[in-house]
């Protein structure tokens, strides 16, 4: 369990992290979301023991990061932002160094290194200097050192940044398979990622928590959640007809407003308070004998929620 209480960091006048409070339980994958410069990295660095908090504290399975940082670091795996590594070393030597520094015994080392090399498919590059590896491989070496000792807490700062879609998929799969019996903190500014791997998301901006919820619940805050879009056949309607139909749709009881797009020949109806309006819209379409090409319910865009929350 991680308990963060009033964790703060300021650099001179600048308040990077402002009294964060939250708890994470075993089995949770917590996504840290926020614009660049929101304080995500500083918060993670404090938890990982790299940056000393100005005020407040956090306990990692009972170990204070201020007074007992060494014990906290023992049960933690950390992937710093950008996955810095020792470029002149080979992945094998590098992982041995990490294992030595973590006081793993020789026979444990062989088993642990074999296991992470398998998991992250590093077998073919073990003897090449890290500097000569591709970005994807380097990120995987960084992940390998973070999970080498099978840590109870895993902190990953932008683990998929700069990876191609296949590699991103692999990393997300890894996070999901590892999540059962530990705590994983992932920071990202890629929203689809949070929706894909996290059981909970915290949005921070200017060092403060602005939202703390499941990705599904966050999506529901979107204006687009349960909105209905009617797509008409290309060039079937004049601009005036589109505008007229938009006005009619806006008249439905549960519709807050309707928006037309004359170029796309589509109309979107936004519901009041996320109400399900697809049925009402369908009835209207049938009654008016409109023949749209398609009619779809929008799920909601995390992007919008993110923008709405972080630019308040």
């Amino acid at each position: 369990m991680i308990e963060v209480s009033k964790l703060s960091k300021n650099y001179g006048e600048f308040l990077a992290v402002d009294a964060l409070n939250f708890q994470v339980d075993q089995g949770e994958v917590l996504g840290f979301l926020g614009p660049n410069g929101a304080g995500k990295t500083t918060s993670m660095r404090m938890l990982a023991g790299f940056v000393t908090p100005t005020a407040g504290d956090a306990r990692i399975y009972g170990h204070s990061i201020c007074n007992d940082s060494l014990a906290a670091r023992k049960i933690m795996g950390y992937l710093p932002e950008g996955a810095p590594l020792y470029g002149e070393m080979t992945p094998l030597k590098f992982l041995r160094f990490i294992a030595d520094a973590r006081k793993m015994l020789k026979h444990e080392q062989t088993a642990a290194i074999g296991s992470v090399v398998d998991t992250l498919q590093l077998g073919s590059v073990l003897q090449q200097p890290i500097d000569t590896l591709s970005k994807g491989y380097r990120r995987r070496v960084g992940l390998a050192q973070a999970i080498l000792h099978d840590p109870k807490v895993l902190i990953l700062d932008e683990p998929t940044d700069g990876l191609d879609p296949n590699q991103k998929h692999e990393v997300r799969k890894l996070i999901s398979t590892m999540s059962a019996d530990r705590i994983i903190l992932v920071s990202s500014h890629i929203l689809e990622e949070v929706a894909a791997v996290c059981s909970r998301a915290i949005i921070i901006a200017q060092g403060r928590i602005l939202a703390d919820s499941t990705p599904q619940a966050l999506v529901k805050k979107s204006e687009w959640h349960n909105a209905v879009t009617l797509q008409f056949w290309k060039n079937s309607l004049s601009d005036e007809e589109i505008e007229a139909r938009t006005a009619i749709i806006a008249g439905i009881a549960n519709v807050k407003r309707a928006e037309s797009n004359t170029i796309e020949q589509s109309i979107t109806a936004f519901p009041k308070d996320g109400a399900a309006i697809i049925h009402d819209v369908n009835q209207l379409v049938a009654m008016m004998k409109w023949a749209p090409e398609q009619c779809r319910v929008e799920i909601g865009k995390l992007d919008d929620v993110f923008r709405a929350i972080t630019t308040q």
Partner: peptide, 14 residues
Amino acid sequence: QSGSIELLMTLPVT
């Protein structure tokens, strides 16, 4: 410069 100090200092090393 390379940032590897972050890696080193977050190992359980004094």
